[in-house]
Design a protein around this nucleic acid. Structure first.
Length: 649
RNA sequence: GCCGGAGUAGCUCAGGGGUAGAGCGCAUCCUUGGUAAGGAUGAGGUCACGAGUUCAAUUCUCGUCUUUGGCUCCA
């Protein structure tokens, strides 16, 4: 007999060799119907795998991440089984799960290419096979047998994978006529998979290395119920409506022109207004936090970037240098602002009493991004960072770092970004060539970030090897409408550039010391931030950012004089205004699709003129009653104030 | 950059070897006077660009550019 500890810490006795499925059955038949996988002492197993010793277990259903993963992993196998049946001779790479669904990397025989049109027929065949309810059977195999088996199939992809595995740890999973190398776990049988959608097809380098050959990656998602698939598809459609590229076009926020060049956004009037509002918000915030605003040129002598090390690292993959016609000078479009700010720091001797120096600039930078990587406003070649560099003493570092985290939080709160991930990016110790500076400085910098995050009580994930080449960083990631993660705010600690630029301050001991540098951009870039903001608000911005706030609607032309008076007043109050000119030309006619996004409409007629008032309607809320234009301005200001309350102190 | 998909009116898209289509928008006029609206009429396109096949190409083929889903990259 063995003892099984359930999640509620109750202990049950079973015969050795009991399976997860049997345990579920013993708890309730309904649970047995829904359960998908089991964790045994923390390791996720198949339900049908016998348990031979005491263990604590967890049963996973669809609602659990582990349950979904098991389900999708088996779906990936089902897809592989189907593809092998339809295209014999196909070679299979890896077939893992992703956030939503699964994929399998494959290589079809004879250079055949799969296209989106083929997906429907694969889906259909997958469902046919699923209906056979084939058991998915786990078996252990020796390394030599595994190699023999896949040699027979001539599948060098699997052979490569097997060759890296340790003998004695290799398992196979079989269903129907299909057997795959796999660690598992899997569903008991394929019949649980009721609804399948193969979503897309893409190229992917074998093992993620661009030197390797490219395989075909087939993405899909599957569900235990048809209805869930339908809901999922509706959700995707809804998300597409929030795409910032679509809304940006509809609302005339930004545009691209082939003639200007790819990845170079044009900010249209309303988008520029939105952006300027965000900029002035941050400028005020930074002023309150002791930052100085500076302005530097868009180009810089190439030697600046040689000093910083950026040229050596990225020069070949950058926009190439600009040369003067006769003096032999070489300039770069600035790909970052740090070197310019370092030069400002060096303008005069600094005392320890002067530190920290906080230098902020909305600096437009230009980076050559591979053409295939460009994406709306989230990945562009010319963008404006809300950059700042803090030069401080080592003893001020942690405190300064924490203050920057505060600024990021204020921004996220002001815009209701709740679902962010804070990611600490450290260097990869196995790859020292990727980084500049001493190991000692890296240790100090990494420790400062980790400690500051701990002291702030920040929930973080740590990624090894994601650091910038000059220092570790803390990044704030936010998801777009379709769940793709984008890095917004970033805070980086840097001991290296101060050394390379020979920055100094005179300490209280009258000796020269090196300051520490913090690079930070809480928005990340105006472009990417606005993109994510659009997708989060679906174009319904907070009132303090809304490009248009009011439509003024005179009911008859004889009231236009009064309407003009109100208009003038509103403009003086910094209320952005659009006017319907149905009756007389006092403004441009408002379009229907604009109308939907304008928060307030003011109607002016006989009664209003008589009372020297306006009738107010709010989008989505209806009639707000009659008030004077002064009262209306007060109402709007109050609302803006509420949205921004408590942010600056 | 690599592997797929796409490029037709301002927008969203249908079509298809032989006068180029719809809806929305736009323009003009009418209607509507407490209203996030209705109707009529009209304007608009070298069917991304270049080459090839063909009596004939927007349609088929190839190339280029742009865009898009991924991969790689992201100071």
């Amino acid at each position: 007999m063995i003892h099984i500890t359930l999640p509620d810490n109750s202990v049950k006795e079973f015969e050795a060799g009991i399976t997860g499925f049997d345990i579920a059955q013993s708890i309730s038949p309904r649970l047995a119907k829904e359960v998908l996988s089991i964790s045994v002492n923390g390791e996720v197993w198949d339900l049908s795998r016998p348990i031979n010793e005491d263990a604590s277990i967890n049963l996973y259903k669809w609602e659990d991440r582990q349950g979904k993963e098991t389900f999708w992993h088996s779906s990936a196998h089902l897809m592989a089984e189907t593809i092998e049946a339809m295209y014999p001779g196909t070679k299979f790479g890896i077939g893992p799960t992703v956030d939503t669904g699964f994929y399998y990397d494959i290589e079809l025989p004879d250079g055949k290419v799969l296209s989106e049109k083929d997906l429907a027929s694969i889906e259909k065949k997958m469902l046919e096979l699923a209906r056979q309810k084939n058991d998915i059977v786990r078996s252990e195999i020796s390394k030599s047998d595994a190699l023999k088996m896949f040699e027979a199939k001539n599948d060098e992809l699997k052979l490569e994978l097997i060759s890296e595995l340790e003998d004695g740890t290799i398992t196979l999973y079989n269903q129907g006529n299909f057997t795959d190398l796999c660690r598992g776990p899997h569903l008991p049988n394929t019949g649980l998979i009721k609804a399948i959608k193969l979503t897309s097809i893409a190229g992917a380098y074998w093992r993620g290395d661009e030197k390797n050959k490219m395989l075909t990656r087939v993405y899909g998602v599957s569900f235990p119920k048809q209805k869930m698939l339908e809901e999922y598809l509706v959700m995707i459609e809804e998300a597409k409506k929030r795409d910032h590229r679509k809304i940006g076009k509809e609302m005339e926020l930004f545009a691209f022109s082939e003639n200007v060049g790819q990845g170079l956004p044009l900010w249209l009037a309303k988008g520029a207004q939105l952006r300027m509002e965000l900029e002035s918000f941050l400028k005020r915030l930074q002023k309150a936090h002791g930052y100085d605003q500076v302005i530097t040129p868009h180009i810089g002598d190439v030697k600046l970037y040689k000093t910083s090390g950026h040229y050596q690292k990225y020069g070949a993959d950058s926009f190439q240098t600009i040369k003067t016609p006769s003096e032999g000078e070489e300039y770069m479009l600035k790909p970052m602002n740090c070197p310019h700010h370092c030069e400002i720091y060096k303008i005069k001797p600094r005392s320890y009493k002067d530190l920290p120096v906080r230098m902020a600039e909305f600096g437009t930078v230009y980076r050559y991004e591979q053409s295939g990587e460009l994406h709306g406003l989230t990945r562009v070649r010319g963008f404006t960072q809300d950059d700042a560099h803090i030069f401080c003493r080592p003893d001020q570092l942690k405190d300064e770092f924490k203050k920057v985290i505060d600024i990021v939080f204020i921004i996220f709160k002001a815009l209701s970004f709740e679902n962010y991930t804070a990611q600490i990016s450290l260097r990869d110790p196995k790859n020292p060539d990727k980084y500049i500076g001493s190991a000692e400085n890296w240790d100090k910098a990494e420790r400062a970030i980790i400690e500051a995050c701990e002291e702030k009580g920040l929930n973080t994930v740590t990624e090894i090897g994601e650091a910038a080449f000059y220092g570790p960083k803390l990044d704030f990631m936010i998801k777009d409408a379709l769940g793709r993660s984008w890095q917004l705010g970033t805070i980086q600690v840097d001991y290296n550039l101060p050394e390379r630029f020979d920055l100094e301050y005179i300490g209280s001991d009258d000796n020269r010391h090196k300051p520490v540098m913090i690079h930070r951009a809480p928005f990340g870039s105006m472009e990417r931030f606005v993109a994510v903001l659009i997708e989060h608000t679906a174009g319904k911005f907070p009132l303090w950012l809304t490009p248009e706030q009011v439509v003024l609607l005179p009911i008859s032309e004889k009231y236009n004089d009064y309407a003009k008076k109100v208009l003038k007043f509103l403009n003086n109050c910094d209320i952005r205004t659009v006017i319907d000119d149905r009756n007389e030309k006092i403004g441009r006619k408002i379009r229907d699709n604009e109308l939907k996004r304008i928060p307030y409409m003011l109607i002016i007629g006989e009664k209003e003129v008589e009372k020297e008032a306006v009738s107010v309607r709010k989008q989505g809320e209806g009639d707000k009653g009659t008030m004077t234009s002064e009262e209306f301005v007060e109402l709007v200001n109050l609302e803006v104030k509420n949205q921004l309350s408590g942010l600056y102190n």
